[in-house]
Amino acid sequence: MKSIQRLGAAALLSLLLAACVPKAVVRTPGDAGMLNEQQTREQALAGTDHWTLEGRIAVSDSKTSGSGDITWVQDGQHYVFTIRGPFGKSFRLTGSPDEALLEGMDGGPINGPDAEALLRRALGWEVPLRELRAWVLGLRADGGPAELSFGQDRLPSLLQQDGWNVDYREWDTTRQPALPKKVFADKAPFKVKLSIESWQLAPR
């Protein structure tokens, strides 16, 4: 009886250990069909510039990190990021291609012509806002070469552009075209992790 119990415990332990092992990510450069499907997605979403997403964001480098809930409202060229961190602390970044305002700092609001430089100076965060606007939709950003790898679902799994690796961990395939749910971008030593809980796209 004890031998059977030991065998049962060993089998259960093996199953638990197997469950803890992360699945290997299978990626392929993609064939002509996958690339054509991606081009169709990009054409369908190219004019999508009015939307709201909500979720979680985490930003880190080799020394510091920060995270919180995020609401991102994109209204044409104008955007509003609201990040609510622990202890009720929140930041609000509003702007357009030529100006940005960061609110929620201890010393009061600060502004400048470059939102990325503003975040870098105020918080030490390196966030590629210009490219992220395209990447968060699963699109290649304009202005630079990009390399794509695809997953078994025939959707982008890894996008490499402007020195960043954009890892698509999960997609919402209930939407057509599909939209990302988890976007992890890194450019050593910087990392940006975005987990999207909801998308709201304005009708076109």
Results as ranks from 00 to 15, higher is better:
residue 15 L to E: 08
residue 22 P to N: 01
residue 166 V to T: 03
residue 35 L to H: 15
residue 117 A to W: 06
residue 117 A to D: 10
residue 129 L to G: 06
residue 28 T to E: 06
residue 4 I to K: 08
residue 28 T to K: 13
residue 144 G to V: 12
residue 162 D to F: 10
residue 39 Q to Y: 03
residue 64 T to F: 10
residue 149 S to W: 14
residue 48 T to Y: 06
residue 56 R to S: 04
residue 10 A to Y: 02
residue 67 S to K: 04
residue 143 G to M: 08
residue 37 E to I: 04
residue 194 L to I: 02
residue 128 P to Y: 05
residue 199 W to I: 01
residue 97 P to V: 15
residue 2 K to I: 11
residue 137 L to S: 01
residue 196 I to Y: 01
residue 186 D to N: 15
residue 79 Y to C: 09
residue 37 E to T: 07
residue 106 D to W: 11
residue 126 E to C: 08
residue 156 P to L: 04
residue 81 F to T: 00
residue 204 R to I: 10
residue 123 L to N: 00
residue 172 D to C: 11
residue 44 A to M: 05
residue 62 S to E: 15
residue 169 R to N: 11
residue 174 T to F: 10
residue 115 A to P: 05
residue 140 R to S: 13
residue 69 D to I: 08
residue 195 S to C: 00
residue 5 Q to D: 12
residue 162 D to K: 14
residue 58 A to Y: 00
residue 82 T to P: 02
residue 41 R to N: 12
residue 145 P to Q: 05
residue 127 V to L: 14
residue 73 V to I: 12
residue 73 V to F: 12
residue 98 D to P: 03
residue 152 Q to N: 13
residue 129 L to V: 00
residue 159 L to Q: 09
residue 122 A to H: 05
residue 119 L to S: 02
residue 149 S to I: 04
residue 61 D to Q: 06
residue 118 L to E: 03
residue 21 V to N: 09
residue 131 E to C: 05
residue 47 G to R: 15
residue 75 D to Y: 12
residue 54 E to T: 15
residue 51 W to R: 01
residue 151 G to E: 07
residue 112 G to S: 07
residue 64 T to Q: 12
residue 202 A to Y: 02
residue 178 A to P: 12
residue 153 D to H: 07
residue 6 R to D: 11
residue 175 R to P: 08
residue 126 E to V: 08
residue 190 F to S: 09
residue 45 L to P: 06
residue 49 D to E: 11
residue 82 T to Q: 03
residue 175 R to V: 02
residue 65 S to Y: 00
residue 1 M to E: 07
residue 48 T to I: 12
residue 57 I to T: 02
residue 40 T to V: 12
residue 47 G to E: 10
residue 102 L to E: 01
residue 146 A to V: 10
residue 173 T to V: 08
residue 47 G to W: 00
residue 113 P to H: 14
residue 44 A to R: 05
residue 159 L to G: 12
residue 85 G to D: 05
residue 36 N to H: 14
residue 96 S to P: 02
residue 161 Q to G: 07
residue 6 R to S: 09
residue 120 R to N: 13
residue 178 A to G: 07
residue 11 A to T: 04
residue 109 P to N: 04
residue 133 R to T: 03
residue 85 G to T: 03
residue 134 A to D: 13
residue 82 T to H: 08
residue 116 E to V: 09
residue 1 M to K: 14
residue 9 A to P: 02
residue 61 D to F: 14
residue 160 Q to E: 11
residue 175 R to E: 10
residue 200 Q to E: 12
residue 177 P to K: 07
residue 84 R to V: 13
residue 62 S to I: 08
residue 68 G to C: 09
residue 57 I to G: 00
residue 19 A to I: 07
residue 148 L to E: 13
residue 48 T to F: 10
residue 12 L to C: 09
residue 55 G to D: 03
residue 203 P to K: 07
residue 5 Q to H: 14
residue 42 E to L: 00
residue 164 W to R: 05
residue 123 L to Q: 08
residue 25 V to I: 14
residue 170 E to F: 02
residue 146 A to R: 15
residue 157 S to F: 11
residue 19 A to E: 09
residue 59 V to I: 06
residue 8 G to N: 11
residue 90 S to K: 02
residue 33 G to P: 04
residue 40 T to L: 13
residue 3 S to Q: 15
residue 202 A to V: 13
residue 1 M to R: 15
residue 101 L to Y: 10
residue 28 T to L: 10
residue 130 R to K: 13
residue 133 R to I: 03
residue 59 V to S: 01
residue 109 P to E: 00
residue 49 D to G: 03
residue 48 T to E: 09
